[in-house]
Simulated scan of single mutants.
Amino acid sequence: MRALTVVPQRQGSLRDDTLPDPAPAPGELLVRGLALGVCGTDKEIARGEYGWAPPGRDRLVLGHESLGEVITPSGGFAQGDLVVGVVRRPDPQPCGACAAGEFDMCRNGRYTERGIKEIDGYGSELWTVEPDYAVRLDPGLRRVGMLLEPTTVVAKAWEQIQRVGERAWFEPRRVLVTGAGPIGLLAALLGVQRGLDVHVLDRVTGGPKPGLAESLGATYHHDPVEKVLPALEPDIVVEATGVGSLVFEAMAGTAAYGIVCLTGVSPTGRTLTVDAGGINRELVLENDVVLGSVNANLRHYHAAADALARADRGWLERLVTRRVPLEKAAEAFEAGEDDVKVVITLSGD
């Protein structure tokens, strides 16, 4: 079979490879890969910044935003089922969180991840997966099901926001999502599905992003954040850019008893001057909360699958702005001017 592989932490090692077909272990599903989403983590691994190969190997099969079709069924799955594979696995000697099924909150860091950390990913024409780590999708999501994994990230974020809010009376009305990439727009989608007044902030004025936000019923802004925040006073901010200055602006710009959920990972090495005392005063005197959220567990995968099944299919298709075949996979790692989500197709359909 063909597969997209890389030598982790070696720049320029990405290639369209030929590997033996996988043999499913007893009880595993054999899956035909249909498509693979590409995200910032994949690009970091391809640049040699991150990632770990399976033990005893140099190369890692890349890819964690999966979509496939069951060939050999098992564990309640049928031939032809549309499935996505879960990314993370708990560590062999699990911490308390992993033992409770909350492996996205692993305390000791000994988890593994498909296509990222010590387990081959889903970027191949064939792959296997344990039934307990496979999620069945609505058949109508065949063109867009690779969006499930990024949707799990925001499904978890919204769950965490809800749990924090319910420490007391909680009836939020307005949410600001900063960043109109895939995570930001999917966060906006779930906010609209919750019946909130959703606003999306991004600096771009052209391309597909403004229209995608507005098609959801959200309001799109491109003014500076210091102008937008005072006008909105959002109850919730979902921060999806990782831009350090914007993160601190968001902390100080919510309504009283506001929640800021950080989903964007900031680069290191840049120094910012901030009024730490002023931010502390705002957080304490207004009972504000700032939390980070990353990864997802099985509960979030199922919540995300439900959210995508309820979403407008045409809108989801528009979120995928570029599709490239496996033989041209390197093109998916090059930024395009109007990219939102770029997808690698692994089979002819």
Rank of each mutant, 00 (worst) to 15 (best):
M1Y: 11
R2C: 08
Q9N: 15
R10H: 13
L14W: 07
R15Q: 15
D17P: 10
D17E: 14
L19Q: 11
P22A: 12
A23H: 13
V31A: 05
V31M: 04
R32I: 10
G33K: 02
G33V: 03
A35D: 07
A35P: 07
L36V: 11
A46V: 15
W52Q: 12
S66L: 09
T72P: 00
T72M: 09
S74C: 12
G80Q: 09
V84E: 03
R89N: 14
D91R: 12
P92N: 13
A99L: 10
A99V: 09
E102H: 14
E102W: 11
E102C: 08
R107T: 13
R110N: 14
R110A: 14
E113Q: 15
G115L: 12
Y122L: 15
G123M: 09
L126N: 04
V135Y: 06
V135A: 07
P139T: 08
G145F: 01
E149P: 00
V153W: 01
W158T: 08
Q160D: 12
Q162H: 12
R167C: 07
A168P: 04
E171H: 11
P172W: 10
R173T: 14
R174I: 12
L176I: 05
V177E: 00
G179E: 00
G181I: 01
P182Q: 02
I183T: 05
A187K: 01
R203Q: 11
V204K: 04
V204H: 05
V204N: 04
P210E: 02
Y220L: 09
H221K: 09
P234T: 07
V237M: 03
V238N: 02
E239Q: 03
A240E: 03
T241V: 06
E249W: 02
E249K: 13
E249S: 15
A255P: 08
V260Y: 00
C261W: 02
V265C: 07
V265T: 13
T271P: 06
T273L: 12
A276W: 14
A276Q: 13
G278H: 12
N280D: 08
N280P: 00
L285D: 10
E286F: 10
D288V: 04
S293K: 00
A296Q: 05
A305I: 11
A311M: 08
D312G: 11
D312C: 12
R318G: 02
V320T: 14
R323S: 12
R323A: 10
V324N: 03
A332Q: 06
E334M: 11
E337G: 03
K341Q: 07
V342T: 10
